[in-house]
Design a protein around this nucleic acid. Sequence first.
DNA 1: TCCCAGGCAAGGC
DNA 2: GCCTTGCATGGG
Length: 270
Amino acid sequence: MAVFLIKDDYFNPTDTLTCGQIFRYFETDRGFLVFSQDKSAQIYYANDCWTVETDDIDYFKNFFDVDTDYSVFANALSNTSDLMQKAVQKGKGIRILKQDLFETIISFIISANNNIKRIQLIINRMCERIGKPIKDGYAFPTIQDLANQDVSFFEEIGAGYRADYLYETCKQLYNDFDIDALKNMDTQTARQALCKLKGVGPKVADCILLFALGRGDVFPVDTWIKKIYHDAFETGLPDDKIHAFFVDKFKDLSGLAQQYLFYFYRTMDK
DNA sequence: TCCCAGGCAAGGC
DNA sequence: GCCTTGCATGGG
């Protein structure tokens, strides 16, 4: 067991973990417990900095994107509007995580037309049922683990009508889909390839591109973003037009901008 | 009881 | 191509 420290005004585990990009984390008495793939990490505040305790230092340094300076991004976005300035102020500790590709695909298929609490519930049940036991919990199942399950498994963990999507996609990913090839495609090509998977549409594809493939030039349009856009501008615009509007505005910082806005609105008035 | 949640697939036009 | 509809489940 080893530790590394993060002392940076633009890192905060609460912002980073609760902003909706990851579902496998738990609050502990001193901070957070986070899972990714078959690895875990404890995060807590001590001696004026955040401490990450884990068996795989390199993995979680990359996972939390510690070598990137987010102050530049945050300041650039703050200057675009009063609203964005408030959103950045609220979520300035957000880092865009570098998550596992397969885990992200499965997690965001589950996320469709669902709420975050129940997404976490379903994913946790999946890991507890067939994930390998690891330190402090369970690993995310491998492609092979999930491809071997019947539809009834996905129904039993509460996936609802997404059970069939998960069943089909896991088989496809295991048999005839090269997910690593996505890493070398340009964003548009990768998005088209992802949308061929059952249960993956434009919004889920954008989340995968952003949270697992490190693409900043996407802007996931979900129910919250539609509310924001409709409040600020006009109603009735199709999702792809809303997407184009924001990507044209924020370019390579679109994904981060979307996270600031999403987090700001979702945590308002509570 | 009804409404909503990080949407998508399928079918009609 | 664009628009509408149905959809499992759990929490408010």
